[in-house]
Each structure stands twice: as C-alpha cells, then as structure tokens.
Design a binder for these strands. Structure first.
Lengths: 119, 119
DNA sequence: GAAGCCACTATACTTAAGGAAACCCATATC
DNA sequence: GATATGGGTTTCCTTAAGTATAGTGGCTTC
C-alpha cells in the first residue's frame, strides 16, 4: 500500500493532463479573472460593484477582463435602463461550471493559510 | 428554486474567498509550476525528465521553479549517488494535497476542449 | 451651473516574467 | 582529447501584463 497513491492513473498520458490544464488556464489567466468569476458566483454585479469588491482592480483591467470573459462565454453583459444607466454582469451556465475550480482553490488556500500562520 | 444556486453560501464573506484564492495562487503562480506539480503526481522525476515532459520549459525556469516549490514545502530534492549524478524531485505529502486542484483543472479543461472543438 | 455617479476608453509608463544562449563542473564514453 | 550527459547558473534581452492617470458622455442631484 503506497502512502500517497495518486488518483490519477499511471496509465493516463501525462501530456493529456498538461494540455487540459493549459486549456483551462488560458481562460482564467491573468491577475484578476478568477477573482471576477469568484465574486460573480455570489450573483450578478455591476461594474462598480465588481471594482469595489476586488481590491486594487482598476477600471481598465476590469473592462478588458470582462470583455474577454464575455467572448469566452463565461459571463453575460446586460445594460439596464436604470436612472443612471447600469450594466450587469452575470455568470452563464457555462461560467457556473467553473465553480468547482474556485471552490477547490479557496479550500486549499484556506488550509494553506492555516498552515503558514500556524493554525 | 434558482436554476444555478451556488454551493458557496451567500453568507460567506466574499473577501475571505478572494484572499484564500490568492494564497493558493501565490504558490503556483507562473507559467510552469502547476505543470511541474502535475508531472510529479506521476511519481518522482529527475531534472532532465521534467524538462523533457514539459514542452518549452527551459532549464533556467525549471531550476527557479523547483527551488521555489522546495522552499514552500511542496517538493523535496534528493541527490542520488548514481553514475552521472542525478537529482530526484518528489512531491511532499503537502504537495500531494494539491492533487484536487490539478484534477479539477484537468477535468474542466478537458470538458472545455470538447466544447470548443465541438465534441 | 457645478459637482457627482456610472461605465467606460485612451494614453503613457513601469515592471516582472520569461526566453535564448552561453557557460560550469564532474564523470564517462568513444 | 573530443564529445556527451546530468544538473544546473549567469547574463542579457524582449515582451506582455499590469498600473496610473486623465478624460468622455449621459444623466441626476444640490
């Protein structure tokens, strides 16, 4: 019985998993995209809400990342006929399939923080 | 009944998850680290093996990333008294706790590839 | 009519990450 | 003694990613 038996089968081709990971990372690359998606898991937000929830994120980057996420079918952009016009961003069903990624990163990050700050 | 009810509770503080994600990403940031960890999930490898399995990875980057992963307790470095000296890199138990991250990224990436290449 | 909010866009600048190439040391093989 | 292999390090250079700052346009409030 090996102590750390991988759940990834040894038969599986290593390069396959490497390509798959690259495909996933291509969509969420950069400093802010995962964070934008994370915030949108809580529900639809408008531009300024997103900017306020993500510390340090400037409007240029937010604008650019939102466009890319929309092009990739991760979010939708809706213009609302409100007093001052507002724009809502919301995860698509496809965007919601990324929730396990966010969840596992958040879980691991939380554990990691406990470890390095000494429980 | 909402169609896409998040498993992340609405009560949970959004900034907490953002910090946790940042903590996780800090360790695996950069172009190569996740790939190195992924390959090491298949078992211990030496320097040249890693370089051969990860297309495009140069020795400078590999060396730098291996050092950082070792400092962060993700991998161990072992010098072997072989004919030409070899060095083995292996995931620590802590490194193995990252397997769910790799797995979920690979799974999602595989699905994503199916989607964009049209099944 | 000045100021403020929302959702951006534009321009200019900085920086850090990564790539390329050369080199180092030891052993060992032709 | 020339070349190869394993495991790197050093230097230099390029480029993409991100930052800072300012401005736009429509509408509303003081």
């Amino acid at each position: 019985m090996e102590k750390y038996k991988s759940m990834i089968s040894e038969q599986e081709d290593c390069s396959k998993i490497l390509f798959a990971i690259q495909d996933a990372l291509d969509l969420i690359s950069g400093k802010w995209k995962i964070k934008v998606i994370s915030v949108l898991l809580y529900g639809k937000k408008n531009f300024t809400d997103l900017q306020r929830q993500i510390d340090g994120l400037g409007s240029k980057m937010l604008s650019k990342d939102l466009q890319e996420l929309e092009v990739n079918g991760v979010i939708t952009r809706t213009v609302n006929a409100t007093k001052p016009i507002t724009v809502s961003y919301e995860l698509t069903p496809y965007g919601h399939t990324m929730e396990p990624i966010i969840q596992v990163l958040a879980d691991w990050g939380t554990e990691h923080r406990h470890k390095i700050t000494g429980r």
